[in-house]
Design a protein around this nucleic acid. Structure first.
Lengths: 353, 353
DNA sequence: TTGAAAGCGTTACCAC
DNA sequence: GTGGTAACGCTTTCAA
């Protein structure tokens, strides 16, 4: 392996000068510079990032912790991160979390050895105290889609989004509106679904629609599970005429349940999702759009700033706008009570109980 | 920052002993060991991976180069990699490639400084010579879904998969079978689509069906573009009764085109895809399944072996099995020629020209 | 079983 | 402008 010393020897200069050329310091004469460059070329020399890092006291790893990076929303966010990082000297070091155990393991390792210079934590509330300990180490942290912490954060208005989705349904004339989302006490501690649900509850209240706990279903973030849950909802004596799913994947599950129950969407059942992942356009899903890609970009930029030593004195929090995307899965409820369908599993469906 | 020296001082031992404890060397007496462990605990010490790497002559980065990691197939593969890496001391360093320029930039940087200890290259034929130069550097490389190179590789039988898809259509009775895939001369040098296309051509030949170049369309790997291309195909004087799309995303585009043209799938048009990404089950798409997740796992395991110095003498190549997944988008062609539809853009559709 | 000391490849400070 | 040289924090001989 060829080192800076070899280059120095070959060019007939000192190692320090080679280093200066490498870091294009202004204090190198042009002839020397050329000589060094030539030597680098001839020897096919490349500096060791490890040695460089050790000397500089910092590495080049940009850590991103993300749960279920297979989910379309996580991928979208990551893409924003990638986009920003492409022009930086940092490498994206990805930590995917698929179980609470793994979450704790990663955070523990993160503390034990600094595997990254900075940390972007997405959608996953860190283990208690982890942030403080990281801060004590001087590791900059930015969180995205995580609420209630004391670090720089990028969020979007989940509560408002929940209201927005619900209001849309209310304005269409729905009165029995179901909600389907993550359990508030899920093992990962995800909170965005709960905030959307709070918005749903609030909007119902302000529309003077009685909240019916029977219309609310919780389960892990998964299409299949959402399908089951929605099937339960649709089998109710007084089934909802509209369902607000806390994410697009779950909304897709609801659509499947509707399909299974031979319910036309949106004529017999309105469905609204959340996120606006790419697939939703394909499925024609009405949804609340949150800027996933942009959240990744912004979070990454903020962390990059902190990494460059330009961290804000106080942690700063940015809230990204949300927006209703109207497509073809929501509409007014059926005007009149319909006769009992032929299928036996479906009870009489009434629009206004 | 607390160093190994601090721990040594605190425990009243030498730095070497602390190092031994850290790397659980057997030659440390239990009492000493406990004392060191206690000191580590008290001081909340964590070793610097940088220094460790420098001393050891190797880092802890597991580089993965993947084009368009937003694509479901890439994500699936990555998930396999993540799965394997979770139990290893390596961190996943992700390089996403979304343009040919970026491809060259990444490979160039990869050569200039070793950003990772080993490299897993997925779906993307490396720049010419890049592999050799990497090998010269002693950087182990494994490629996945890339053909025709001289490194350890994980592939699947694209040619056979192309035949398989086509044969399925032929056996259903189709004679006008369209193909839609990546251009053979695409700027990234992707080759799997071309191999599937070759399988399609071959199978057509062995079924004694005349190959019609008009039924073949190429374009970048994108659903929208596939939709346009499929629309062209369907607007032909003698449109295909079935379309084999080289990937599921493209097949979805074909389905959209069919929907736009008010063509029932599979009654008026059969569609078969390739990959079997998660979404395909939702869409009910008949497809050729290739083990994406498993390809990631295997590739990662092979690279891990190489990283551990257990590289095979000769580069070894593994071919993963493919399998036909029958769902609801393929069926026999319409038995009789149909009358001209009411829509004006659609020409007379004939089943058997 | 333990410790002292010599690297590992850079960078940066300090003379010249 | 340039060249020594001391860090940077760890691992690993080599002695004891």
């Amino acid at each position: 392996m060829v080192t800076i010393g070899d280059v120095a020897a070959h060019a007939g200069v000192g190692a320090a000068t080679v280093s200066r050329v490498l870091n294009d310091s202004p204090k190198v004469s042009e002839p020397t510079r050329q000589r060094v460059l030539a030597a680098i070329e001839v020897l096919d020399y490349r500096p060791s990032p490890l040695a460089r890092g050790l000397s500089l006291g910092r590495g080049h790893g940009f850590g991103v912790i993300v749960p279920f990076f297979t989910h379309a929303s996580a991928v979208e966010r990551l893409r924003g991160v990638v986009d920003v990082l492409a022009d930086s000297p940092y490498d994206l070091v990805l930590f995917d979390i698929e179980s609470p155990e793994r979450r704790d393991q990663v955070f523990a390792e993160m503390l034990r050895r600094d595997r990254a210079d900075g940390l972007l934590v997405m959608s996953l509330p860190p283990a208690p105290g982890a942030l403080d300990r990281l801060a004590a180490r001087g590791v900059p942290v930015v969180v995205v889609d995580v609420g209630g912490t004391n670090v720089s954060a990028v969020t979007s208005d989940d509560f408002g989004g929940g209201r927005m989705a619900t209001r849309h349904l209310v304005e269409l004339g729905h009165e029995r509106i179901g909600f389907l989302g993550d359990a508030p006490d899920n093992p990962f501690g995800f909170t965005s679904s709960a905030r959307r649900e709070a918005g749903y509850v609030e909007e119902l209240a302000s529309a003077r629609i009685r909240f019916d706990a029977a219309l609310v279903r919780h389960g892990p973030h998964d299409r299949e599970i959402a399908r089951c849950l929605a099937t339960e909802l649709l089998a109710l004596d007084e089934p909802p005429t509209a369902i607000f799913a806390s994410s697009d994947v779950q909304a897709l599950g609801v659509m499947e349940a509707a399909r299974d129950a031979s319910l036309a969407v949106p004529d017999q059942l309105s469905v609204i999702g959340y996120d606006d992942v790419e697939l939703s356009a394909y499925a024609g899903l009405t949804t609340v759009r949150q800027p996933l890609f942009e959240s990744g970009r912004l979070g990454a930029r903020m962390l990059l700033e902190a990494l460059a030593g330009r961290a804000p004195a106080e942690p700063e929090s940015h809230q990204l706008p949300i927006e209703l995307v109207l497509r073809s899965t929501t509409g007014p409820p059926a005007a009149t009570p319909k006769p009992k369908p032929t299928r036996q599993t479906r009870p009489t469906r009434r629009t206004n109980p």
